[in-house]
Design a binder for these strands. Sequence first.
RNA 1: GUGGGCGUAGCUCAGGUGGUAGAGCACAGGAUUGUGGCUCCUGUGGUCGGGGGUUCAAAUCCCCUCGCCCACCCCA
Length: 422
Amino acid sequence: MIRKVKGTRDILPPESRLWGAVEAKARRVFEGFGYDEIRLPVMEPTELFVRTVGEGTDIVSKEMYTFADRKGRSLTLRPEGTAGVARAFIENGLGQRPQPMRLSYMGPMFRYEKMQRGRYRQFSQIGIELLGASTPQADVEVLLALHTFLKALEFDDLVIVLNNLGDPEDRDRFIKVLKDELMPNREKLCGDCRRRWTENPLRILDCKVETCRELVAHTTPVADVVSDEARTHVDAVAQGLEALEIPVRVAPRLVRGLDYYLRTVFEVISPALGEDTVICGGGRYDRLISDLGGRAVPGIGFAIGEDRLIDVLPDSFKHRVLDVPVVAVLPLGDEAAGSALGLTVQLIEGGLRAPAEVTGRSLKASLKWANKIGAAVALILGESEIEKNQVLVKDLREGTQEAVARDAVVERVRRLVGEGDS
RNA sequence: GUGGGCGUAGCUCAGGUGGUAGAGCACAGGAUUGUGGCUCCUGUGGUCGGGGGUUCAAAUCCCCUCGCCCACCCCA
């Protein structure tokens, strides 16, 4: 048997409905804020990610799906979305359009990682990017869009965790401060942190080992080391969010795994699911476009892990999506078959889901089938009904049925199931 | 990369000391004429992860291999 590639997955009905609903909701909310979708290639020149995400990061150093095409060019399946957006912004001259540029994206990303719950090698992200605005208000808007989206999915316990990474110059200064402060206790750090000491010192900050956490807790937060401008910026973001009554928690130890972030960085976690379950991450990246050879265009954005998001979706939203009423159309005999399909068209045009019975089974078996697919109503179309230009409308929940004139069926059914969806 | 667990029907699993495969669920049909949900009957469905070895005989014993899951690490 041929099986799916490790780390990929088949998303089957009915779960696929949730994906569709989440994506539709994302488009609606983000378009409302002015973010139109940009659809980008899933493969890019390898160099794009090396230069943006950062050579020292785990993503680039050991997690990319990199391969040579038939002409020997090094290509990589995108491990994240922002780099491609930046590339497209420069390549398509999007800086010539009215600024700022608001873009959203969604789709599969690829990272060669060791498998674990909630993590896949092909996973999907939904994100937005706001390019060409460097004010705190821009950050607030992006976070507000995020918050609005999550509220539309009926989340009520999610927390935005915010930190200030400062500018790149600040970061170098901070790393020096951090190392100086930890130096006396360097031997007490865990093995991984001693490795991070040289390779990626910032990552010591979010080590999960208890002793490391304690040591780190006594160090100076990044926010205290950053420039006045950076501090003013992120403080204004926090205030702006509070003014909008968006719950924010400042987390002095929050760092992120990509090199391009500066100043505002944030994550969204669900307290109910534990502090480690990050379903969204993002931040400001004012040097990214210029680092790629474009003009100096500031940017801020985030990416939501769609797989995880769907994993933790509130039940209320799930039911709203999954529990839509179904009407089963059951023809009896060849005469009725064509007429039944005509009826389904009318029903779906009326906003209902109305699958028809097409296997030619008996009425008894057809009703069993209607029951199994969760139909609320069955429409029976036999010879006598066709003769009288009627349809037998059977309420499967109540067990009642009545003959209804063909022209009145759609309205009758809509009332029976409570309008139906759109 | 390190450590642990597991691979028998679509799913959940039974199959002491070797005798060539089962249950429940699911799916399909039926219990006379055009009426579901309960019940009953019947049926479809398996290279027992793969390969090799021991044996008259292996799902069962031995060796190798592949795959999956969980934790660490890292991240979304």
